[in-house]
Every structure is written in C-alpha cells, then in structure tokens.
Design a protein around this nucleic acid. Structure first.
Lengths: 333, 333
DNA sequence: CTGTTAGCGCATTCAT
DNA sequence: ATGAATGCGCTAACAG
C-alpha cells in the first residue's frame, strides 16, 4: 500500500501512547465516544491530530466482521442508465461511512460469477446488483453466505435476498397501449440486446397482439446505433409511423436519423424512449419516454444494506418503485 | 459482512485440513503455485472446490500490506467525461486482480480531503484522481504516506507523484487559433465552472488577445444548460458567429437551441465542443470537438499503479497524452 | 518443497 | 470508566 519504506503510518497504538491511555480506550474514544470520559476523549483527539492517525479499516473489519464496504455491480460503468443509481448509492453510503467497490460484468454471466467472487473476497457488507443475479451457482453461494444482496432495476418473486425495481413487462405493455391509443399501426422497435430490454419488448408485442419489425442492436446503446436501427427499420417498412426504443439514447439516434432524412417528428414518425435521461426533455422535439426513479433505487438500496448489516430487520422483500410514461413532443404530447 | 449467523465461511484453515496439508502450504498453493509440487497443488485445489473457499482479502492485505484495491476519485460519477477513464481503469485493474473503490468529491476541496482520508483508511495500493489534488494538506499527507498517486486529466510540473493528462491551456489556445483561422470575429464561450474548463477558457482568451462574451454554467454540464448558455450569449451578442463550448454535451445543447431558433449550423453559428463524446460524431450536423484519450489515461494509470505497488520503478513523472482537434460539420469541416 | 512461528492493526470479550 | 488478554484470517520470515 505504501511505496515509501521509511514511512510508518501512525497506528492506534501510537495514538494511545501519545494520549497516555491504553489501546482499548483509544479505540473506544473513537468508535463509541459516549462510553468514554470527556477528558480522555479530548486527549485522544489531540493525539490523533498530533500523530496524523488514520484508522486502518482493513484491520478493523477483520475483527469486527464489518468492512463498511458495499459492492456495486453493473454491466459496464458506461451504461449511463445506471449511473444515477450508482451515484446515489455511493453518496448515500458515503454519508454513513461506507465506500463502494465497483465491478463490471460486461453483460456476461460467467464474468458475473467471477466478479461476484472477487467482491465476496473483499467481505462487503452488502452487494448491489443492477439487474438480477443470473448465475445459479452465484445465487446459491450468495444465499448461503448470507450477505445482504439487493438486486435492482428489475423484479422477481424470488430474489436472492431483496429486490428494488419495476416490471419491464408492464413498461413494454404500457408503451404498446399508448401507441394503440394513438391509432398508429405501422410500428417498429429499436432495442438493445440486453435481457431487460428484451422483456420490455415481449411486453410490447404481447399487448400489441402481433409482432412488429424490430432492430436489435448490441449493448451499450449509443446515438450511432439508434441511427443505424432506424435505417434498418425503414428498410423493413418504409411506411413506418412510430418507433419504440429501449433507451433514450437510442431514441435520440432514431430522431437524429429521421430528421436528417427530412422526416418530421412526430408527424411522419413518432418516437418513444426509455429511462428519462437528462437530455430527453430538452431536445427538439423533446423525447417521450418512460421515467424510472434511478436515484431512488440507489438510495433505497443503500438504506436496506445498511439496515441489514446493522442487524435491523428489513421486512419487505420486493420493492416495486413503478414507472411513469411521460408524453412529450416526439409522440405529439 | 454476513447476516446469517449460522453460516461460517470456509477459511484457509479448513482448506488445509481437508487437503491434509499445513495452512502455509495451502496459502502458497494458491498464491505462488510455482513453489508447490503438482500433487499437493491438486489436492489443495480439490479442497478449495469441496469447501467453497473464497479467500479473505481483508486478512491477506492486513499481513501482506497489499490490499489489491485502488481508489478512483471523481468529482461525480455522472460527469460522463471521466467515465471512459474510470471504466478502462476498472477493467485494466480487474484483469490484474485489483478492484476499484470510488469516491466523489462533488467539486469541493473540503470533501476532497475527507474522501481521500476515507480512501486512505482502506489502505489502497494506489489512488487515481481525475484532476489534481487541490487540498494542500492532502497533498502532504499523500506524499508522506508514499501511496502511489496518479493525477489525471491535467498537467503540472509538480504532481503529488505521477500525472497523466494534457495541457488545458493549449486546448483553449488551439481552439482559439482554429477560430481565428476561420476568420470568425463575433465569438462566444459556453463553459462549465470547473477548474479545468476555466483554464481552457484562459488559453482561449489569451490566444485570441481579447475577451469575448462568456456564459458560465454550473457543473456538471447538460444539454439543458447548453441551451440556456446560447440564450445568454445571444442576448450579449445577437450577431454571434461561433461558440466554443467546454464539453460536447454543452455544445449539443447550444446546437439544439440554435437549430430550434432556425439558425443554420455552421452557416449562421459555428460550434466547437470538447471531449469527443460518442454522440459528437453522429449528430446532424456532427460536432467539431477536441479529442482526448480517456480510456488511454485509465489504462496507463492502472499500469503505473500496479508497477509501483509491485516495487518496479516508474521513471517518468509527467505523461502528456496530448489532444487532437477534430473538425466536423458544426464548424464547416 | 514443506512446516513452525510470528505477527499485521484493530475490536472484542472479560476483568477491574 | 478503563485496561489486559485474545484472535479475526492470512502471509512473511525463517527453519527443516
């Protein structure tokens, strides 16, 4: 950890010596101030200042079984959809003295297991997944180990432990219902290839009652992929009226391509996104989308993990935070 | 770390017992396979499988002084400019068995110090900062502790330890030179309020030889802020010809606002961004910008930290990765 | 090649 | 309210 061999960081032992108290007292003065007399507390505080003491949480965690670390596992950090969640999680936890370790699965189930093992070896007080845990071995291992796990951005009756999210089937269904209510008939779908997007697609098709031209693009989605998706969809159906997209980024790409071809949005082509990214409300025309409370997911996850790691009971297993369809200009709203 | 009191995770001790070898041998079989006979190695491997052993890196780190963790400190996770760097850093390190802890400073120097202390208490093998370390106390503490520190996305003659980046003054200067070469005279600047953006602004103005209308928006930048910035700039100079923006997101906002007002880009208004975000090449018109090798910064940082933590020398102190002005349609390229 | 002996720095029993 | 002893799980020295 240090590369400077001559330097020895101050330990609690040094603090105790300088303060003229025992090691235990110094420890208590810092972690349980109410149990120590004001005088000695002050002396310990001074000793901390004097020595420049910074506690070693590795050592503390080893003994106390509380690492004060939480693992956050995402497909990839660059999937901007999850960023507000991870950011809120990190901030909420930081306020309570917890830090976040990040792991990336690359949308790969084998890597997921490897990443989870890497995380477990750091003894986190909790694990927050974006998405469900897919590897069966990992599920069992997590369950056996009894580490608090919060799966997010999805729902299931049987989470490993707790789950915070919303129904992707219902999202797809809601968008399809909305399209039907608008009377559009020549529909298309531009979707990422990830599991949750596919489930939304299922919901969309199920409610529609029939299949529609679909362009599947690899994750993570991008503006360029959105443009390419529209090209593909227009080849399949030049008379396309409305496109349902699996992300706002994709929707923006579809819109850029449409406008570049001289199509008017929404008159010639209506577009709906997903996620309610910051920009969706401010493009011209603005993008209709499905709003999800990303930061809320992160905050609630933080709260649940901390409660559980403190041994407090968390009754509810499944937290459905729902979603909201937001009608903007890109669908004539 | 566990909330299931009945479950005891297997320790190396269990593995050793099952394998019928001593604890040390089991340890070596896993961490230094070349020093152990193939037979015992195989038996230890089997015992690992049988027990479901996952090493406790907290304990390992405590003794070995190598936590295999690296702290990554960003202003905020949602600042998309740094994401490719953090993602590359995380991936590169993961391949080598290191994990990343993230800290957010919120562009606040006091929080920076608090975050750095929180990180130090986890005994990281290195710290990667986006930006320079601003708190003087933190600089000294880091230097004294001898933790490998890589400051990024900026340059300085006197880094805490190592620095990987490019000159923001030169970026501003290059954009100004480009604008001058185009013969534009009615210029404006839309810039975030963060330190590095301000330095680019300085470079821009210095090369220009005169001040220009400037709209300063709070960080993090967004499309909405870009739109607002253009409104402000047009109030200051209705005859505005070209805008220099401190990020591509801001540039996109400026462009959206310009097009919404019926201005043609670049004929009526030329726009230049910064960062070469994914979308910049694919908007219509595409956005001219300054390309920076974000992932390269992350990979090099990973390499330097790992080398240093292994005690290998890393001669070079300052790594200037430079930048490239990319001319696209938004400036008539 | 393998085993024995010592801690790493701290929090937790137990005492007083 | 404070202190002495014990060990969390593992690895670095040494021996053998």
């Amino acid at each position: 950890m240090s590369v400077n061999p001559s330097f020895k960081a101050a330990t609690l032992h040094d603090v105790a010596r300088v303060a003229g108290v025992s090691l235990v007292t110094a420890s208590r003065a810092l972690s349980r101030p109410d149990v120590v007399s004001d005088k000695t507390k002050a002396r310990v505080q001074q000793a901390v200042e004097a020595t420049g003491y910074i506690p070693n949480l590795l050592a503390g965690g080893l003994k106390s079984k509380r690492s004060l670390m939480v693992a956050a596992i995402v497909p990839a950090l660059s999937v901007s959809q999850f960023l507000p969640t991870v950011q809120a999680l990190t901030s909420s936890l930081a306020e309570l003295g917890y830090q976040v370790i990040v792991g990336q699965t690359g949308y790969d189930d084998e890597q997921e297991e490897a990443v989870l093992n890497a995380m477990i070896s750091r003894q986190p007080d909790g694990i927050v997944m974006t998405g469900l845990v897919h590897s069966q071995r990992a599920r069992e291992r997590l369950q056996k180990a009894g580490i608090p796990v919060v799966e997010t951005w999805d729902l299931t009756e049987r989470p490993v432990d707790r789950v915070i999210g919303f129904s992707h089937i219902k999202v797809g269904s809601a968008v399809a219902g909305y399209f039907l209510s608008k009377g559009w008939t020549r529909l298309g779908v531009a979707t990422g290839s990830d599991r949750r997007a596919m489930v939304r697609h299922e919901g969309f098709v199920a409610t529609l009652g029939r299949d529609v031209p679909t362009a599947v693009v690899p994750a993570p989605s991008s503006l360029a992929l959105g443009r390419r998706a529209l090209v593909e969809l227009l080849e399949k159906d030049p008379g396309l009226q409305a496109v349902c997209c699996s992300s706002d980024t994709l929707a923006q790409g579809v819109m850029v391509e449409a406008l570049a071809r001289g199509m008017r949005v929404p008159q010639d082509l209506a577009i709906c996104g997903f996620g309610d990214a910051e920009f969706a409300a401010h493009t011209v025309p603005s993008i209709s989308t499905v709003h999800v409370d990303g930061p809320g997911i992160g905050r609630l996850a933080a709260q649940i993990i901390v409660s559980r790691s403190r041994g407090e009971p968390v009754a509810q297993t499944v937290h459905d935070l729902g979603f909201r369809l937001i009608e903007r200009q890109s669908t004539g709203g």
